[in-house]
Design a protein around this nucleic acid. Structure first.
Lengths: 340, 340
DNA sequence: TGACGGTATGAAACCGGTTTCAATACATCA
DNA sequence: TGATGTATTGAAACCGGTTTCATACCGTCA
């Protein structure tokens, strides 16, 4: 008996179920579509039995064709190896599943051409919504898509696009970082960021950094980008140590890794000579030196919020674009021990 | 003129293109399906122009319905926060894109129920192939699916399933680790693994560990699982230090993090008191203490290989299930400095 | 007994494509 | 000139579902 099933190479279709159960396709469709109260109890029972026996699974694509809904959400990620992106994605995924959606993830590898390619692909799969966390160097393409598909930007802002935004309250995070550094006695601060590159969150952080320091008296600041010459840049910062205790503020996880590596390679005793506070929290921060002080982003909640934005739009809400900002949480470790 | 486009709320369909271009749906279909040599040059040119002007994008779902191919690959991941899984996924994604496939990623969060749920979902989306990296506690479900969809297991083995396997040559990796430890003078080795839990790669590593040590003279060994009581277990291992220099072999990245944390928390001077060699390479290994010696898995290649397996099956190859094993690369750092 | 209303179901059109088969136009050849 | 072949194209069926609309059946009430 099970052998018969084993030989079934083709997938069971609704017509097959209808034929076996001796009813019409429409009836089966009603059953699987949840309109069970429309059906006679005996019919429903028979269908349940036949479906179970045949192992029938409705074809989501076919359903989507007529219904116009695929229950698919697309997510465009600039760099899937970046823990921040993955953490957000985890939040998105959780929210998706809770609402019966599946997630299609596309990694652009920071490549403009792949971004365009994936955008086309996602549209062709009729994703119902799009979560975008990329450079956005194709605003034209995005602009087109935005008219057809609800969209939300994560950790990125594109002025051309009138869409929902979810991210971090960067000004607040920077303020928290500098408050802490100042309280601990640091006076000479270097911000290290990945190349700005038009990425709004990076720009915001660096600008907030400059602005916040300017409002404080007796503090000096400087900005450095993560490049092959990072080590030299750090060295020259450390060499000019006349302005008081020095600290580094890294604008994201990648920058933190780069800086920590460079300091480590230069034989600098972590963090005796220089303080460090990182934006983004990674699981190894407690382990290096006396631990790295961090501003943790609520990545999980950011992901969930992004999905919820989409859901609101899908349900027809058409209010003005929102901007949802989360606060960072300061986690104090040894890398910013007191200088007093 | 662009305003007219802006008002277009509905997606452009093939019928629309056909109507505007004054041809039949079949002709348009031929054009987008790549049968261009069938068309008159003038027709092709006109279609190109109309499609461009209307911004037409074929609906992949509709195509898939008749053609039976969705160009979708599904990947089931046990824990998307695990860097190993993400790294493999990155490889898969790269290979997918190169062959015109898109990737649907489902994270089961190590939850059996979610695993079943996602399996059903992926099937309902008509994914053409499945890459599985989960606990596989639903062999029944997988067994069913396997008859309909080509499948490949990554880093997992399920004896019930006759499918392709891609992973690490665990015996070789363990051998490399112990060769190195022994050469460095360590004699008393503790293997730390996540709970075995039926996960084949973990079991293989622990078994290979036991077997390999037994073949060496003068070495003692012991196995510990990552649990809340890990700290105590480590302490008691370290306390019984009579058998010669001690080292820890962690079976994967999660175990490494847990062990390093526990050692760190216990105030143990990393790695003066005990050596450490880790299976899996993570980007922060160079940074803690004098650096952690690691056996790096070629995750990217593993991902690519997994996809290629699928591709072979999709192209009709029906040879016996293969097992593809990669060798780990030893990266020597300070955590296994010589004990001589 | 016949008109009426509600319930359960089926037939057929439809979603946006692909594919088969037939038809047309034109050039070639005997 | 008529037969034949080739290059282009269109009409319609089809993929696996959903949905609209019509219908058959049943009990109720006047």
């Amino acid at each position: 008996m099970t052998d018969m099933l084993a030989n079934t190479r083709e997938r069971v279709t609704i017509s097959e179920v209808a034929r076996v159960a001796g009813v019409s396709k429409a009836t089966v469709s009603r059953y699987i579509g949840g309109d069970r109260q429309l059906l006679a109890e005996a019919t429903a029972k028979r269908l349940a039995e036949v479906i179970e026996r045949l192992g029938y699974r409705p074809n989501q694509m076919a359903r989507g064709l007529k219904r116009g809904q695929t229950r698919l959400i697309g997510m465009l990620v600039a760099d899937i190896l970046n823990p921040y992106s993955v953490a957000v994605m985890h939040g998105v995924e959780t929210a998706c599943r809770q609402h019966g959606y599946s997630l299609v993830v596309c990694n652009t590898n920071r490549d403009d051409e792949q971004e365009r390619h994936h955008l086309v692909a996602l549209q062709s799969y009729n994703v119902e919504g799009l979560i975008v966390n990329t450079l956005g160097h194709h605003p034209g393409e995005l602009l087109n898509l935005q008219r057809e598909i609800p969209m939300v930007l994560v950790d990125r802002q594109l002025p051309e696009l009138k869409v929902d935004l979810v991210g971090l309250d960067n000004a607040d995070a920077v303020e928290q970082a500098l408050d802490h550094l100042q309280a601990q006695g640091y006076r000479d601060i270097l911000a290290v960021t990945e190349p700005l590159d038009g990425t709004s969150s990076r720009v915001e952080r660096v600008q907030a950094f400059g602005a916040s320091i300017s409002r404080r008296s007796g503090m000096r600041h400087q900005v450095l980008e993560v490049t092959p010459g990072l080590g030299a840049g750090l060295a020259s910062f450390l060499a000019a140590s006349g302005h008081g205790p020095q600290a580094i503020f890294t604008c994201n996880g990648v920058a933190t890794l780069a800086v920590t590596r460079a300091l480590h390679d230069s034989g600098c005793s972590l963090f005796e000579d220089v303080g460090l506070i990182a934006l983004d929290e990674l699981d190894w921060y407690p382990l290096v030196g006396s631990g790295i002080t961090a501003l943790a982003q609520p990545t999980e909640r950011i992901g969930v919020a992004a999905f919820n934005c989409l859901l609101d739009r899908l349900r027809g809400e058409s209010a003005a674009p929102r901007r949802i900002d989360f606060k960072a949480d300061l986690i104090i470790r040894g890398s910013t021990h007191s200088r007093e």
